[in-house]
Amino acid sequence: MSNRIDVKKTYKLFINGAFPRTESGRTYEIKSAKGVFIANPCQASRKDLKDAVVAARAAQPGWNKASAYNKGQILYRLAEMLEGRRAQFVDEITSVTGVTKIKAEKEVTESVDRLVWYAGWTDKLSSLSGALNPVAGPYYNFTIPESMGVIAAIAPETPSLLGLIDSIAPIIVGGNTVIVLASTKAPLSAMSFAEVIATSDVPAGVINILTGKKDEIAPWMASHMDIDGLDISGLAPKTHGEVRVAGAENLKRIYSFKSADPGRILAFLENKTVWHPIGL
């Protein structure tokens, strides 16, 4: 290498399609598995969460109205963009977590495949989870899944990229918008994934990514009246109780998941039943 000075990346938040610094000005240090300093990502504050919720709420009707076909295309586009930047993600995963390059490559491959898998679900949801109900009267009675609104999610610590995708994709598949808190120890791939989102036709505000401390942000997410659901898969089980209590105050749906399956998509959908008169 020459005497060139490194161009270090500033890791910022991703709110409403833009990359702001945290309003609080706080950062925290992350280090590699060997203890070497890597970066100073933002430590998001309650106001950052509030801004993200405002953005997600504003974006929700538009995203909900997009056709299933269109949503699927956009999710697939995310996979395309991620595929094109494999090397960067492999680097970031290995530098922070210390896993081997082969393992990191496997995670990125799985992440791309997972996005493609979720993309396929958008136009199959209503036929598979909806129903035509037999009723004793002159009505067509059918049930279709509808989006809940704004959902917050806490991504698991590891795997940092695949876990993030499992926190984002199932929520937005059905027309919800999401605010996700990335892995605290390994947030680099999350912030780089924000760059993938920014270049792949996802409307501003549909996906918002925060970095920071889980114990700090989880209770704010739970008590915020304008968040309709919360995915706490990435939260230590001992703190689940406290978060569920805070969320009970505003009847928030709070779930924790162990794997990627269609149930994860359906958890944040509500069933709407329509009675349509016939024979009139």
């Binding site: 509030k50 919720v53 709420r57 704010w220 008590s223 915020h224 009246m225 304008d226 105050e249 505003n250």
Partner: peptide, 9 residues
Amino acid sequence: DGYYASPAY
């Protein structure tokens, strides 16, 4: 209340 309100209210 100490927590953010919703426009629904």
